[in-house]
């Protein structure tokens, strides 16, 4: 993971503001079922990613191996979502495999919603990791009064995912040089090819973790229960703006999802229905 220096310095948002944004997007994602809503949320998130300097490849490459899973989710949801949809046209069976297993428009839409939710969470996490230095995570954990050892455990895990990924690429190259091709041959051969990657990867992961623990001790990790705080978390004007916007946006989001909350004052049931399947 490459970090964007322009956003990690004093000009970037405070990590707490980023968390607030993350929560806001997640609440939006959970509140609504209609894939169009999620499409809009995804566009906002991807746009944000592009704005901070992430490329489309950086945002989506981690999702590529999950494509078969996504197809299965779509099919499973498409055939198994019953007919409990608000809009009549979504209840109509498009295709019946056998009695009780009908593909509905609503089912497909719900499947798409699940995929958008996954995509939003992954891309948003990528953006936060990309724009936040390790130190800010640690400072946040300190602020939350988490033990330093736990804080470091989490942040080291963040640091070592790319290291392990690099190792994986080296192992794939070494095995390809022996003629192992993961994309060719029968299912069994493909499985065997993956074993040839997994075993050295696991061995290397164990070796790395063992050496890492020694390296941390060499660097004095655990000398005392706390450590020197280099920079303190500090809210600036953009942070207050983002916090207000995040909190403010949640009010209409809840009202639209649960119109009964304000039915005494305003009838927006017809608007609320548009956001459902």
């Amino acid at each position: 993971m490459v970090e964007n220096p322009s956003l990690t310095g004093s000009g970037g948002l405070d990590i707490r503001s980023k968390c607030a944004l993350f929560i806001q997007f997640m609440v939006w994602t959970v509140l609504y079922d209609h894939p169009a809503c999620h499409g809009v949320i995804s566009c906002m998130i991807v746009g944000g990613g592009l704005y901070v300097g992430l490329s489309m490849k950086q945002m989506f490459f981690r999702l590529i191996p999950l494509v078969p899973l996504f197809v299965m989710i779509m099919l499973f949801t498409g055939f198994n979502s019953g007919t409990g949809f608000v809009h009549l046209e979504n209840k109509v069976a498009l295709f019946t495999l056998w009695p009780g297993a009908s593909l509905t428009r609503g089912g497909l839409m719900l499947g798409a919603t699940f995929l958008f939710r996954l995509l939003n969470m992954v891309v948003l996490t990528q953006i936060i990791l990309f724009t936040t230095p390790l130190d800010q995570f640690i400072n946040l954990f300190v602020k939350l009064k988490l033990p330093p050892a736990l804080s470091f455990l989490i942040t080291t895990a963040i640091r070592f995912v790319p290291a392990l990924d690099k190792k994986r690429n080296l192992i794939i190259a070494a095995q390809r040089a022996r003629g192992i091709d993961m994309d060719e041959g029968s299912l069994f051969e493909k499985f065997k090819a993956r074993v040839a990657i997994m075993i050295p990867l696991m061995v290397n992961a164990i070796v790395i973790s063992d050496q890492l623990s020694m390296a941390l001790m060499n660097r004095g990790f655990g000398y005392r229960k706390n450590w020197t705080v280099m920079t303190r978390l500090q809210f600036r004007m953009p942070d207050y703006f983002v916090l207000c916007l995040s909190l403010g946006s949640l009010v209409p989001a809840f009202v639209i999802r649960y119109p009964g909350l304000i039915e005494k004052y305003l009838d927006i049931e017809h608007v609320s229905v548009l956001f459902r399947i």
Binding site: E3, R159, R219, G220
Partner: peptide
């Protein structure tokens, strides 16, 4: 252990 050189160098003295 750090993502930047600075972050890494500070790690030991901070501990």
């Amino acid at each position: 252990v750090g993502r930047t050189v600075c972050e890494d160098l500070a790690f030991g003295p901070r501990n």
